[in-house]
Write a protein that binds this DNA or RNA. Structure first.
Length: 653
RNA sequence: GCCCGAGUAGCUCAGUCGGCAGAGCAAUUCACUCGUAAUGAAUAGGUCAGGGGUUCAAUUCCCCUCUCGGGCUCCA
């Protein structure tokens, strides 16, 4: 009997009878692997375990508990959900159902325009459990495009996908649905089939650790002019434990929601009278913000930046020259007519900084010029996009613009990235990732040389900083390449915060120039840099990262002094005064409520320290120190506490 | 902007199948003066988001608007 030789990931060779499948290979290696296997990768291509393997192929078994395995489980679970929905509402049209981070969704259109409710999710879940219990096989079938069009004639969305493939237009979102020139579908029972590129787990019994989460509207192909479909989201995992952990993380995320904590901790609010996306900062929130901004200013000053200010509105000519009115008018607040001119609230600070550069003739000796402004901008975000502090209509950008020579770009980018990382780390973010976006394939400005040099400069900066990064080919703006910096928060969520963008466009639009050493007029390169990005959003991320329990250096109140009884209030007063004199933020609550109650309130406010003073302390000049998340320490000399708090503030711990 | 859902006291929520609006916490007052996460009593607090309609009667049913939430789209 003929045999095939297979190369395994460890480099070893294994021979099996011709016609053997991935499942056979896994079983041959061991029963544990056979049980864990979900699909097989053959020469870098994912396939069903039931597919025959090719002689000489490099083969690796993909197990459930791997990124690819999870991907497959989520994809297959999406299919089971579609099957359940179709069983419950016959005539349902299926659109697309891809895996996503942590889960999957499926876009469907129910007969009669029915919309799904949260209650329906339970019904669908129950049906899915039946399908899982039935352990139906995922059977793959392949068709030509013509056969596919015939087979899916009644499936309006699937047919549209096939038609697009036939035209050679294989868009990213369809990639999960169809292969290259071949239409495949999976049938796992007599009455359900779904067009899909696969691969899938061998049978529905391999699934089960899932939960449906929410239902929402989604446009077909993301196009507002196309029908609104029902999108059902779910999460799926390899094990029960993973699912439980994920659900626990979601509960934790809800507890940390900055909108909830902003109200509970009296930080900011959004009075209806102001309009959507416009917040007012209460004293405690404003206190944290001031500390954030002061720290930022101090770092920028040390980093060689010059501080500038600009007005909130400017005449239309500025925005015409910058190009904003051509490209971004939809996101700008409408103009105010004054003295025959139109004044627009600013959506960005850069044109103003350009004006400052242009205010006098610049020499190469002055460059690089680094301008910094905490500039408040207004952008007309769509009403449905506004979201707490994370997406506001008015917000403040920690905006820096650097004007330098082409020769200086690389060195400037390297020190810039270093600066950004250092400040982010000071705010408690130590898991940082980046994305490098390169020249778009369509229209873009600037010659090749400068794109190549700037992109290489960004890349070198990332490598010098030893930062993990991915490359988004063609993802840059038309005016230059960029780096986006993400941080991972305390519960594993990524937030994009900083951005460093090289700009070959604005200097030309505004005719910027400097005099080079040879006397020639040259155009400077401009680098845009936002570090926290929006101060509002950064604050929101900090609230969620710290769950409202700010470290001592940022806490709006660092220590609350509580007198055991009224007799000790004079001593408490003095302690508060001494702490304030030493530069700390402290307050006191009178002994009108029992001590336990006052401690509880301080704990609910998530204050770093509660200081309790009674008879012993008055007699000995000590305090009782109740540290957030720590043990109670009695009889601590005041000087010792001050020293400890000062160290904590200095270290940002 | 689009789809779906929600809006009752400062906060968290109950309630009214159409008939005078309820609790806990918070607030205020009084008493209690206490050594590490809730002392007790009393008082006050609402055009039931806003506007219109149906009705003898609307917080409740219907329509519109506003705001919020989850998504879609967008995020220079």
């Amino acid at each position: 009997m003929a045999e095939i030789a297979l190369k395994l990931p460890d480099g070893s060779l294994r021979t099996l009878p011709a016609g053997s499948t991935g499942a056979d290979l896994a079983a041959d290696i061991g029963p544990g692997l056979a049980k864990a296997a979900v699909i097989v990768e053959v020469d870098g291509e994912e396939r069903d375990l039931s597919a025959p393997l090719d002689d000489g192929a490099e083969v690796s078994i993909v197990v459930a508990d791997s990124p690819q395995g999870l991907h497959t489980i989520r994809h297959s679970t999406a299919h089971v959900m579609a099957q359940a929905i179709q069983a419950l509402w016959p005539g349902t049209q299926l659109a697309i159902g891809p895996p996503i981070e942590h889960g999957f969704y499926y876009d469907v259109e129910l007969p009669g325009g029915k919309t799904l409710t949260t209650e329906d999710l339970e019904t669908i879940e129950a049906k899915m459990r039946d399908i899982v219990a039935a352990d139906q096989p995922f059977e793959r079938h392949e068709l030509s495009i013509e056969e596919g069009l015939a087979k899916f004639a009644d499936h309006i969305y699937k047919r549209e996908i096939i038609e697009r493939v036939a035209e050679g237009d294989l868009a990213g979102e369809d990639a999960g649905e169809v292969g290259d020139g071949i239409i495949s579908y999976y049938a796992n029972s007599d009455d359900f089939l779904d067009m899909c590129a696969g691969p899938h787990v061998p049978s529905t019994g391999r699934l089960g650790h899932f939960k449906l989460q929410k239902v929402a509207g989604a446009y077909w192909r993301g196009d507002v002019t196309r029908p609104m479909l029902q999108r059902v989201y779910g999460t799926a995992w390899a094990t029960r434990k993973q699912l439980a952990q994920h659900l626990a993380m979601l509960v934790e995320a809800e507890k940390r929601d900055h909108r909830r904590l902003a109200a509970e901790l009296d930080l900011v609010s959004w009075p209806e009278e102001l309009g959507p996306g416009l917040a007012v900062w209460h004293p405690k929130g404003a206190n944290v913000r001031r500390l954030m901004e002061d720290y930022s200013r101090e770092r920028h000053e040390r980093g060689g930046y010059e501080f500038v200010y600009s007005p909130h509105i400017a005449k239309s000519v500025l925005w015409e020259t910058s190009g904003h009115l051509d490209f971004y008018a939809d996101s700008m607040y409408p103009p105010m007519e004054m003295d025959g001119a139109s004044y627009y609230p600013k959506p960005m600070n850069c044109p103003f900084h350009v004006m400052i550069f242009r205010a006098q003739q610049r020499s190469y000796r002055e460059l690089p010029i680094r301008m910094f402004e905490l500039g408040t901008v207004y952008r007309y975000e769509l009403s449905g996009a506004v979201h707490g502090l994370m997406r506001s209509r008015g917000f403040t950008v920690d905006d820096a613009h650097i004007f330098c020579t082409r020769e200086d770009v690389q060195a400037e980018l390297a020190s810039l990235l270093e600066f950004v990382l250092s400040v982010l780390r000071a705010f408690g973010f130590d898991q940082i990732q980046a994305k490098l976006s390169t020249r778009p394939s369509e229209k873009s400005v600037g010659d090749d040389d400068i794109w190549v040099a700037a992109t290489a400069g960004l890349k070198a900066a990332l490598e010098t900083a030893e930062l993990d990064y991915v490359v988004d080919e063609g993802g840059g703006a038309f005016y230059g390449p960029k780096i986006d910096v993400d941080v991972t928060d305390a519960i594993g969520r990524a937030w994009q915060l900083s951005t460093i963008q090289v700009d070959f466009n604005l200097p030309g639009r505004f005719g910027l120039e400097y005099v080079a050493s040879d006397g020639a007029r040259k155009q400077p390169v401009m680098i845009h840099r936002a570090l926290m990005g929006s101060i509002e959003r950064f604050f929101g991320v900090l609230i969620e990262h710290y769950a409202g329990a700010f470290p001592a250096w940022l806490a709006p109140i660092q220590a609350r002094v509580l007198a055991v009884a009224s007799d000790h209030e004079d001593y408490a007063d003095k302690l508060v005064a001494d702490l304030k004199a030493a530069g700390f933020r402290a307050d006191q609550v009178a002994a009108d409520d029992p001590l336990g109650k006052r401690i509880r309130n301080a704990k609910l406010e998530k204050l770093p320290y509660v200081l309790v003073v009674g008879d012993d302390d008055v007699a000995n000049g000590t305090v009782g120190v109740n540290r957030r998340g720590g043990e109670v320490e009695r009889d601590v000399p005041v000087a010792a506490f001050v020293e400890q708090l000062a160290a904590e503030v200095a270290d940002h711990t």
